[in-house]
Design a protein around this nucleic acid. Sequence first.
DNA 1: GTTCTTTACGAACACTGTTCGTTTGCTTTA
DNA 2: TAAAGCAAACGAACAGTGTTCGTAAAGAAC
Lengths: 224, 224
Amino acid sequence: MAKSTSSSGTGSRRARPAKPALSLAVIVAAGLELLRQDGIAGLSLRKVAQALDTGAASLYVYLDNFEALHAHMLDHALGEVAIPTDGDWRQKLCGLLRNYLLVLHATPGLGQLAMMTMATGPNALRLLEAQLGLLLEGGLDERRAAWAVDALPLYISAIAAEQDLRRQQTDPLAGITQTLAAAPPEHYPHSHRLQAEMLAGDGEARLSWALDMLINGLIHTPRP
Amino acid sequence: MAKSTSSSGTGSRRARPAKPALSLAVIVAAGLELLRQDGIAGLSLRKVAQALDTGAASLYVYLDNFEALHAHMLDHALGEVAIPTDGDWRQKLCGLLRNYLLVLHATPGLGQLAMMTMATGPNALRLLEAQLGLLLEGGLDERRAAWAVDALPLYISAIAAEQDLRRQQTDPLAGITQTLAAAPPEHYPHSHRLQAEMLAGDGEARLSWALDMLINGLIHTPRP
DNA sequence: GTTCTTTACGAACACTGTTCGTTTGCTTTA
DNA sequence: TAAAGCAAACGAACAGTGTTCGTAAAGAAC
């Protein structure tokens, strides 16, 4: 996909990768690589610059903000989301959303980044158009599809962000589990009884159920 | 609820509020006040300490982390979410979720904070129990209710976080609107045609529709 | 009165995003 | 060829951030 280092064809004439000429694409790639390694907490302009063997100030030729880096990184990642072509509309829509979550899930912190950044790049637009097409293909009226296309990816992003949150804390058991265990069963009977059930199921099963739930809700809820 | 300032009974003997004796409750209150004024970007340990007329290091007696402050602030805010008592189960559940969004919406940045923090305080548990009770009252089986109680507040939090994001950027028009306007209509026909429709409706109407959609989906989607 | 523990605080450390002034290297002119 | 212009790159500095450490003060327990 991405161009390999230009100097690697004829053999590198330096020990270091010959300083890849600093462009927006290279900056974004370095940012995503850094995110992949250190997560959202380890992502910083200075470290991106350091990975590119330059100073932080040099990046401001290509970026207005740190937030702009976020936006470019997100949209670049969104370019990896495949749009299904086989099956009926529902299978294709579920597949698209599943691929979206897959991409967010592939690099740690990307889900959180998606919730911190307005997705407004060309790839976001591409996914928007595809989702609208699939919803209309499914027979939904335009007004419903227009609102659904906001709700669906928002929910998927929230799932990814939540799982990122769970991943980045040292002890995933320390969360709600301790609270539930310490809660007096006579005051919180449902929470106590369903404790195990709430944590049951792997990510795949829960996602499939959630997607079904969303689309079923969509079908059964006309717009006011 | 919280103890009032102990020195206020006999009258303050200093010009300044007599240094309110530094407790977790006071720190959390100051943090929420700071959030209310400056949003999530303006929230910092040092500013909270400054508002309490002390240094940042002093807060570490009551807090392990900056993240711990987040958690306590979130749970304190969650204490303001009212649990409806009138109407059938569906009205009560919708009311609860609406109140939840209302609270997140009331102070800027709280929605983002809710997506950055695991809600694991006593008030989160209280809301969890209430939601479980209402779902079971509605006739949902326990396995479905157990998963729904994770999905529902997550989606509401995502809505709040998204609106916080929209609020904190100077120009709310600058988002997807520009991208849509610049997109060639022949390549993105649906996006172009439904441009206005996607932004239509106020927050109330969209929330009501979203809640209906979620609950309808819940009803029509059995667990695997 | 003397210990011991909790609470408070100042100074310092290692970071962060961002800005400013300057230097470099290439391209376009004269 | 030489001069001028210009965008890109860079180093230093600024105003912040969370967190840690050593050290005081203030009570409580003996």
